[in-house]
Design a protein around this nucleic acid. Sequence first.
DNA 1: CGCTCAGTTGAAACTCGTCAAAACACGTGG
DNA 2: CCACGTGTTTTGACGAGTTTCAACTGAGCG
Lengths: 244, 244
Amino acid sequence: MNRSAQVLATKLRTLSSLSAGDLELIDRVIPPASHYEARRDLIREGEVPQYVMLVVQGFACRYKTLRDGKRHLVALLLPGDCGDLHAPLLDHMDHGIATHTACLIAKIPREGVLDMLESPALEKALRRSTLVDEAILREWLLNIGQRRSEERLAHLLCELHHRLRAIGMAGEAGYDLPLTQAELGEIAGLSTVHVNRVVKELRRRELVYLRRGRVEIPDPRRLAWLCGFNANYLHQLAEAGTFS
Amino acid sequence: MNRSAQVLATKLRTLSSLSAGDLELIDRVIPPASHYEARRDLIREGEVPQYVMLVVQGFACRYKTLRDGKRHLVALLLPGDCGDLHAPLLDHMDHGIATHTACLIAKIPREGVLDMLESPALEKALRRSTLVDEAILREWLLNIGQRRSEERLAHLLCELHHRLRAIGMAGEAGYDLPLTQAELGEIAGLSTVHVNRVVKELRRRELVYLRRGRVEIPDPRRLAWLCGFNANYLHQLAEAGTFS
DNA sequence: CGCTCAGTTGAAACTCGTCAAAACACGTGG
DNA sequence: CCACGTGTTTTGACGAGTTTCAACTGAGCG
């Protein structure tokens, strides 16, 4: 099974169980990935999408910008995540997609997506994945709208812990997070300086140790309690994260 | 054509053009609506959805709550809007839906939705509608994350103006908005008091006159310019709002 | 008339943003 | 190996924006 297909399969299995036939189908329709540099636009606002992009390796994001250049990240795309399945339905993009780190991206042609939708299990997994994307958007909205900076960052870190663990990219007490504090600020709607102060405070309280791309969470339960994190909205299968 | 079907048709025609056959199909699968009081839960977080709810009359919303009782509205459902088409795919709701004003709600059974998805034009319209819902979420996230209170409220009022105009519920320079300032605050992530101050300031600058459920916008272009509003993300057809 | 709920106002406290500078990490080329 | 440059993290001081509390006004309704 090629690398791209494997990554997608891993992600989809966190949402629905797949048969051997499904895995073969995935392998057949997912093209090999190509390499992109860090911080590079994959598609810009206003452009017309041709493919569904699948992140195979690295971190990417969806973003929107304001006239004055302020940018807000409206989604984080982890390995296995992809752009909207029905994106081709919309004339033009209302947001951009960019790499964060260096990435491997597979461009799935329209027909490949349609083929996958033929399989009931894959259809279910793919549709669930778009529903989860939407659920995450709602949770982020709540996060920014109602929580204050400390809980806000804590909540974001909890979410990433869960999402990364589901795809085998995080351990019990920590994970690699290749995001600068400025970028965390662009997600959380906080200034870089304030993110830094919050990070410092979380460290002082021994809740999170964040430094140079690495997140350590000594007691995930305590952190989750602090910010009221509840993973329900991620709609992960119970056994997610336990397979190879 | 029954009332519920008519409302849905009006909404869908803002997204894709429908044939006479499509309209008949809609009429056949949409059941009559029933009445709900104002401020009543239609479905709560954690419950399992059985139907797709269609708002026929009145305003409803999706909301999420925090432990401490703070509530945030993550979507506003106007006449013609409905809950997620594939909601039944998810085990339990990660948010609640509630009426705002008194409402007429039609509960579309699963099979009705499937029937509509058979028609290419309806499928396109329905899928586009979920994509637009997601686009609105992203825009709200940007709005709360990056804009300050005045532009934030202005942007929200611009969006509602466009959405209501598309379904024939707003004129060139104003519309009825049955939301309290407290509720606007729950959307914008602002305290009631601050919403009030911003409303006052917008009135002073002759941008928006908001009082007792009525919004008057003497110069929509000027207001849109102030907050950087660009309707692209609503993906409305050009002729939206011009039909009966 | 008196109730209730929405809107309004002021003062004080607090959260967070801005500006500016310094400390630090990392990669590069000398 | 060190020096240098770039980009990220850290710090302090200050001010702007926003929340909170508490009281008051006004409209609608029984």
